[in-house]
Computed example of a mutant assay.
Amino acid sequence: MNERKTYFQQLDYTLLFLIFLLMCISLLAIYSAAMAGQYNVEPTYFVKRQVIWFIIGTVLMIGAMVIDYDMFKNFTIPLYVIGLILLVVVHFYGIERNGSQRWISIAGNEFQPSEFVKIFLVLALAHLLFLITKDYRERTLKEDFVVVFKVAAVGFPAFFLILIQPDLGTALVIASIMGTMLLMAGISWKIFAVLGAVIFSFLATLVWLHNNFFEFFTEYLVKPHQLRRIYGWLDPESDPGDMGYQLLNAMQGIGSGKLYGKGFTEGVLSKSGAVPEIHTDFIFTVIGEEFGFLGATILIVIYFLLFYRMIIIAFSCNNMYGSYLVAGVIGLLVFQIFQNIGMTIGLMPITGLALPFVSYGGSALTTNMIAIGIVLNVNIRTRHYMFGSEELT
């Protein structure tokens, strides 16, 4: 009884309250987005389905929270292997939509395996890093390279299988998870500098191939719809009726919200159907237009507070395995939020990433709720004292 009481007291209510606020924002924005001309449904249609997904996600979050996270090590390899198998199945038998083959249909219900692979990868890398860094000794540069190589060997298969769907956004989330967890592992900044140089060289090579060997570039490296998205991002005004259509309308809608917004359900562009996928990938457009700069700022502040709480939990845990788990979740969420908001205001190219806890969708929402359950799990099993922390046993 005392142990349960301790667990109950250790529950991070601030984190839960922030998730609740995001849930409320999500339901309001989805309700308003459902009134757009591109959807022939009742405004409550998507809201009801999103509520169901929140309930399912909450159940899964509790499940991820109540099991001692140390037991996750027993399921790491099977889960990750299952995830990779599902990605292979998607490649051969997946449902194609908008130029990408990302979904599997089971009993009439579609889900996106890559969403769950993100969680499986966090578990796998946390276990791997815990095993190879648990002695806490200072590593040489050569040993750090070995750590990076092992992390890349585990993460690259998922990265590659997702990239060829093609789903660049989720593939970059995989890279973000690996990078954040390596950062938590204390990898030398020199290695990050080398990795940055390699990435820059790779991008420079792609630009050179685009300019000098365009046919090879479009046939083997970049899909036509991906290239159109890049063109639409770099110069949307050059083709406002096609490549730049979605981005220009999204930015116009957000900009027209000004300081206080036009009011709930009063967005003009949000309702006109001028912004495709406004209830999923471009939900931030609704928030910017109807709640203005103030509403968008409140949303971003909530995200910052969410990350602040998770960072505190990661560094309060004296079990490196728990710290790696939380770091992986931070990497999983941070890039998605930055990418989603960035693409709606023209800072980033358009990808199919949802805004965590706000965009409509089942696979992404349940994955993120499981991720929060893992973070709460780590916090619950860490005793906090004035001068340190100790893991609950």
Rank of each mutant, 00 (worst) to 15 (best):
F120A: 14
N109I: 15
Q112R: 13
I106P: 04
R97I: 04
I106T: 10
A124G: 12
A126N: 06
A126K: 06
A107T: 14
F92K: 08
Q101L: 05
F116L: 08
E110Y: 15
F111A: 07
G99V: 01
P113R: 11
Y93N: 12
N98D: 10
G99S: 05
L123W: 09
P113L: 06
V117C: 03
E115K: 14
F92A: 01
S105W: 00
G94T: 00
L125K: 11
Q112H: 12
N98V: 05
L123P: 13
R97T: 04
V117M: 02
F92M: 05
F120E: 03
L125V: 15
A126P: 13
G94V: 00
S114L: 05
F120Q: 11
L123M: 10
I95F: 13
S100R: 04
F116E: 00
G94R: 02
N109S: 12
K118A: 06
R97W: 05
F116S: 04
E110H: 15
I119T: 08
L123N: 09
G99K: 13
K118R: 13
G108Q: 06
S114N: 11
I104L: 15
I119R: 07
Q112A: 12
L123V: 11
I106Q: 08
V117E: 01
A124H: 03
R102H: 02
A124S: 14
E110G: 14
R97S: 09
W103G: 15
L121T: 14
Q101P: 13
K118Y: 01
V122N: 14
R102V: 04
N109F: 15
Q101V: 00
P113T: 02
N98I: 04
W103H: 14
G99W: 03
R97D: 01
E96H: 10
F111I: 03
I119Q: 09
G99L: 06
V117T: 09
G94M: 01
F120S: 14
G94Q: 01
P113Q: 08
E96V: 11
E115T: 11
E96S: 15
